[in-house]
């Protein structure tokens, strides 16, 4: 700040003193409003569109599902399952990003149908939430048996 202060105007005529005080009051009020918005939401939990919270990137990515699929081979071991290949879907299509547990259930159902009767498909999945990752599906059981 010192570099900026050094160019101050110094003593001002008495008539301009009130303008300076007015500016100081306005500066304080505007700065207080700037702080009030994010403080209201982030500290006091008050959510209103009238105040900007500056909670950036707080909603992007919520709900996204990190899923991995495995299928049991006829000779016993589990191997990674490529859902795009099994369903004949493009890798950059709608199947790329699973955004809800309902969508995941639909993908599992389609995989089980495509793999055929008696298929053993294991699914590990977790969903993005505000507090981190939440496990929504474990590979303890055959997903096709549900």
């Amino acid at each position: 700040m010192a570099d900026i202060i050094s160019i101050g105007t110094g003593a001002e005529p008495a008539g301009r003193l009130s303008a300076g005080r007015l500016r100081l009051v306005a500066f304080t009020a505007i700065a207080a409003f700037m702080v009030a918005g994010p403080a209201a939401e982030q500290i006091f939990g008050v959510q209103t569109p009238w105040l900007r919270s500056w909670t950036m990137f707080s909603a992007i990515g919520l709900g996204v599902i990190d899923a991995s699929f495995e299928i049991r081979r006829p000779d016993g071991p589990l191997v990674p399952l490529d859902r795009f290949e099994l369903l004949g879907a493009p890798r950059n299509g709608r199947l790329k990003r699973i955004e809800s547990s309902e969508e995941l259930a639909s993908v599992i159902k389609r995989l089980c149908i495509a793999a055929g009767q008696g298929a053993d498909i294991r699914v590990r999945a977790r969903q993005g939430t505000r507090s981190g990752w939440q496990t929504i599906h474990t590979d303890a059981q055959n997903a096709c048996a549900d």
Partner: peptide, 24 residues
């Protein structure tokens, strides 16, 4: 306040960045 909002375990653990990366 952008930093204050991110000063949580969810963000600092990398989970939120992972979610954003997966999303996009």
């Amino acid at each position: 306040f952008a930093a204050f909002d991110k000063s949580s375990h969810a963000f600092l653990s990398g989970a939120r960045i992972e979610q954003i990366f997966l999303w996009f």
